[in-house]
């Protein structure tokens, strides 16, 4: 049984799954629109949480938030379940699929056979959709892949029960009911409000625009504190978080710019076009930071000082503070 499901590639897996599932129910929202309504733009730097022994820097909210927020803001009814028993997780999946519903799932990428090898580490917050099953092969729409993929039930079970940090535990989710009238304008307002609030007002130094300044201040001392080699690894991790599969470039800043551009017409606020192009410039600044930081990762001559890199981040923080303050004003 194979559902008539359209696979569209996207930059980020959760955006892609959400957008593709919505399209199946006739709600035509692009990846940037899903991302913006779900307030996917964020920043946090948490030196006390380590990944591969290095501090975590993130450009997005917690996994699962985008799907949750978008479906809530559009008034959809969804189901999210996880299972302690893998067999039950697989039979439930089949049951829901058979009822004609495409199913989103949280999986680990380490054992995901079709994934590029260099990206197969123990990361457990990847999303994909199963939309059919034939001869024990599941038809998989993985938003970061260019085409449709296939997994047999053993392989699918393995990735649904990956181990490590935040194990997916067979988590699956799907849309149960779609209301007749959907108010996209309202959802856009809610998304922008949510994003500017998260970027500007969380009263802790690690989050939002403040988090960028916080990282800048820490970064200034990395080389003195950690030595050249370790400091460059810390930088490498920041670049990977910002640019790796899924961010659409510059830590989601370009996707957000695309969202502002598309929203300008929908909610009839031409000012958003202007802010979109400012957001593009901010994205370019993040990319310039990556170019410079990467010079230190290569361990050759022409290095940039950590003070210069830190200064670049402070400039970015300043621009982001301005833009989110303006966004907050516009949608008031």
């Amino acid at each position: 049984m194979i559902l008539n499901f359209q696979h569209n590639q996207s930059a980020h897996c959760e955006n892609g799954v959400t957008s593709n599932l919505l399209k199946y129910y006739g709600i035509n929202l692009s990846e940037p629109m899903v991302f913006g309504i779900g307030a996917g733009i964020f920043f946090s730097h948490m030196p006390f949480i380590k990944l591969n022994g290095m501090p975590v820097t993130s450009f997005r909210p917690l996994p699962g938030m985008i799907f949750k927020r978008v479906t809530r803001r559009l008034g959809l009814t969804i189901e999210r379940v996880k299972f302690s028993n893998p067999e039950m997780a697989m039979s439930e999946l089949d049951k829901v699929l058979l009822s004609g519903t495409p199913v989103g799932m949280l999986v680990g990428v380490f054992n995901l056979s079709y994934f590029p090898d260099a990206y197969r580490f123990h990361f457990n917050a990847h999303n994909l959709v199963a939309f059919g099953k034939e001869n024990n092969q599941y038809h998989i729409s993985d938003p970061v892949m260019e085409s449709i993929e296939f997994l047999n039930s053993e392989d699918l079970k393995r990735v649904r029960y990956a181990k490590g940090t935040y194990p997916p535990k067979g988590r699956m989710y799907y849309i149960k009911d779609v209301p007749k009238n959907i108010n996209i304008e309202k959802a856009i307002y809610a998304g922008i409000k949510n994003a500017s609030k998260d970027m500007l007002t969380i009263p802790l130094p690690m989050f939002g625009v403040k988090g960028i300044d916080y990282l800048a201040n820490k970064m200034q001392n990395w080389e003195n504190k950690l030595g050249e080699r370790k400091a460059s690894h810390y930088l490498g991790q920041v670049i990977r978080m910002m640019e790796e599969i899924g961010t659409g470039g510059a830590g989601f800043r370009f996707i957000y710019a695309a969202f502002l551009q598309e929203s300008a017409d929908i909610i009839n606020k031409p000012e958003l076009k202007q802010l979109s192009s400012e957001m593009t410039q901010i994205g370019d600044k993040w990319r310039e930071f990556s170019v410079n930081a990467a010079r230190n990762c290569k361990g050759r001559g022409d290095k940039v000082t950590y003070t210069e890199l830190s200064q670049m981040l402070k400039n970015i923080a300043k621009s982001e503070r301005t833009i989110f303050t303006q966004l907050k004003q516009i949608i008031k």
């Binding site: 590639q9 996207s10 930059a11 990846e31 940037p32 970061v144 260019e146 930088l235 490498g236 991790q237 670049i239 990977r240 640019e243 790796e244 659409g248 470039g249 370009f254 996707i255 710019a257 695309a258 551009q261 598309e262 979109s276 192009s277 593009t280 990319r287 990556s290 170019v291 930081a293 990467a294 990762c297 290569k298």
Partner: peptide, 25 residues
């Protein structure tokens, strides 16, 4: 998938095989 501006200043999806700084990282 990358997001970039076309000749009319509209955002479009563009596919990329990679980028030097992130390859280095």
């Amino acid at each position: 998938v990358c997001y970039a501006l076309d000749e009319n200043g509209n955002y479009v999806q563009v596919l990329s095989v990679g980028w030097e700084p992130k390859n280095a990282a």
